[in-house]
Design a protein around this nucleic acid. Structure first.
Lengths: 200, 200
DNA sequence: GCAGAAGCTGACCGATCGGTCAATTACCGT
DNA sequence: ACGGTAATTGACCGATCGGTCAGCTTCTGC
């Protein structure tokens, strides 16, 4: 049998380790996530982790890098597409989908973007976030206008991201992702599309 | 000379250490803030830190406890005062003032409330935040309604809190606190006072 | 002046950290 | 069956962690 069509029960060790690591980074933090804990939780030894990933930092890069790539793409598309209402509406939808599809990674680099400064992958994330803030709040904008964008994007991000903190442990109340998506798009649209000071 | 009226240049060592520790906890995270670093940064020895505070955890408690007290009071007042528009307006103002007056502490227990679970002082903070979310979003509320509150409070919190992450390092752009306060109150009022589904 | 408390420190402890390395095992094409 | 590569592991390293302790200095009440 050729090399492809891997057995469905047999997942690649590196993928398994990356996912366990992402879970750990998001829930207990990068600094508090020891390679030993990650290895134990995944059923491997610490040495195996360092065989698949050259360092703890490389593991972080593998875990959250793709999400940062997606965010950069999202930002580039938005910058190229202008800032009209239609472009904003498209961006809002894509941004919410991005958040819903990358909760753990976003949780990690949003909540720890400050404390992990200096790590290249984190700098990349912070640069993307800063670029988002800058591009969305063009040069001339009232403080209230800036604050509206800040509250909207940070609020959307943190509402999803902090759901893990304050809703996960207690009784399961699994609101369907689709409902969350719709509600979030509604609220963001209210904030960002009906603003008074829109550039016509 | 009696014990009071301490020399103005001579600040109490315990206060100095607590403030340096809070700064560290907020900027590099609790796990990554070693007692050694805190001591060095404050100009004392690690042993001195442990003389004034029984443990690293006690130091965290001293650093963020008062802010949590204030948040609990705020929450209690809001619960007792009803949920009408007037009460909400008062709460919004007090909440923004609370955020502005406790940025570092809020930054610490909001961003690390997940990773530091298990520490009593953090549990207290998480309980308060959960209580805030519950009390503000009463039993019957649409998902969009809940999301509006979530985005508003989380957005306001994170906008101030993350300002440290993304605005501190680059060129100083010190918007006056008063302006931020006004803008934030405006945006929160838009979100929380004009909502369609208000309980009349 | 002196006893004693308060403040402060260096030496030290066991545990754990991220990371290296040599050895072992599992797998695969030939 | 065999040789080579990939995967996995335990032993080990220096550094640092939070915390303890005995001892040193400084201040204060009498």
């Amino acid at each position: 049998m050729p090399t492809d069509a891997p057995s469905p029960t047999r997942v690649r060790a590196s993928d398994e380790l990356r996912e366990v690591a992402l879970q750990q980074f998001a829930t207990v933090g990068f600094a508090a996530s020891s390679l030993q804990h990650i290895a134990d939780h995944a059923g491997y030894s610490k040495s195996s982790v360092l065989y698949h990933y050259a360092s703890k930092e490389a593991l972080l890069e593998a875990a959250i890098g793709p999400a940062i790539d997606r965010l950069e793409t999202l930002l580039r598309e938005f910058v190229d597409g202008g800032r009209g209402q239609a472009a904003r509406a498209v961006f809002i939808e894509r941004f919410v989908d991005f958040l819903l599809g990358n909760r753990l990674a976003v949780h990690t680099f949003v909540n720890q973007g400050q404390s992990l400064r200096g790590l290249p992958v984190i700098e990349r994330a912070n640069t993307a976030i800063r670029g988002l803030a800058d591009s969305i709040c063009d040069e001339h904008a009232t403080i209230a206008e800036q604050m509206r964008f800040g509250v909207a994007l940070a609020g959307a991000t943190y509402t999803l991201v902090a759901g893990a903190t304050f809703l996960d442990d207690d009784d399961a109340r699994p609101i369907a992702d689709d409902d969350v998506r719709d509600a979030l798009i509604t609220v963001l649209s209210e904030l960002l599309l009906t603003a008074d000071g829109l550039p016509d």
